[in-house]
Design a protein around this nucleic acid. Structure first.
Lengths: 138, 138
DNA sequence: TGACCTATGCAACGGAAGTGCATTTAGTGA
DNA sequence: TCACTAAATGCACTTCCGTTGCATAGGTCA
């Protein structure tokens, strides 16, 4: 818990009890997390608090937001030292059509694409959809 | 208008007046279209009708749905002969952060990615975000 | 013409994101 | 230690968009 406290402080986020718990939950989870997921786990807490916690984490680069095409915003912890706003740190995400979970594939960066003149790329999102390793049985 | 009628019939969609108008609108528009966009243009028509028309078009492969990360579903006409459910026909989309429009870059297919064993890819979505050619002034 | 199926219109629901404001909590300095 | 201040939390709403159920209109074919 001490390390988490440190991590939050380092990123300019006051380490409150709630925030530590949410961080811990995200750290233990292997898949991307929606607000609703967290809401269910921390049923006692206020929706808004959880919502704002995630937003704060995102602003302070502790988590990155994931758009996996389900229409529901998901979040996952950033790797230490990763700056998800930089093109070279953009990795792809995999959404399983079977278990409905989304995972970060941080090893797989989004390939650079050459666009016609005039287009300036600032950000990119690549989501692959299919069956994940757990569901395919490998 | 005759060609549109033919196009709809060929795809198993009854060419009603409403549908012809919507198709025409989509054909003349260069950017991806949301339900709300259409709703504004066809103010006299019912939201639900427009909604269901788009869904029908999508089912019958007349349009493809686009998830550009704005959280709002967009649609664009499929190229004739294109089957957007096939991996080789998947193209990328570009969303302009300035004018907020999304365009299909049908020339640019999504590169194939080799995933770890166990992952089975069925679908993919790649969205680049930045400034489009119109907004960048080139 | 009459039966039938499909398209359209109307009304309402539900999930998720987001906001305004009051209240509590936790740091800061005298 | 106490008071002050700012940030975090809790509560009540709102809005936006997608979606569905059911009644009605309209087109098609026997």
């Amino acid at each position: 818990m001490k390390e988490i406290e440190q991590r939050l402080s380092d990123n300019g986020v006051r380490p409150t009890a709630m925030r530590l718990l949410i961080y811990k939950y995200l750290a233990e989870k292997e898949t991307a997390t929606s607000l609703t997921d967290i809401e269910i786990v921390f049923a006692k807490a206020e929706r808004t608090t959880l919502y704002r916690t995630l937003r704060t984490f995102e602003e302070k680069k502790i988590v990155h937001q994931i758009d996996d095409g389900t229409g529901i915003q998901k979040y996952a912890l950033c790797e230490p030292g990763c700056d998800c706003s930089l093109e070279q740190d953009l990795h792809l995400h995999f959404h399983c059509n079977n278990c409905d979970e989304t995972v970060c594939l941080t090893e797989h960066k989004i390939p650079h694409i050459n666009l016609p003149e005039g287009y300036v790329t600032e950000d990119a999102n690549l989501v692959l959809k299919g069956i994940c390793e757990k569901c395919s049985g490998h």
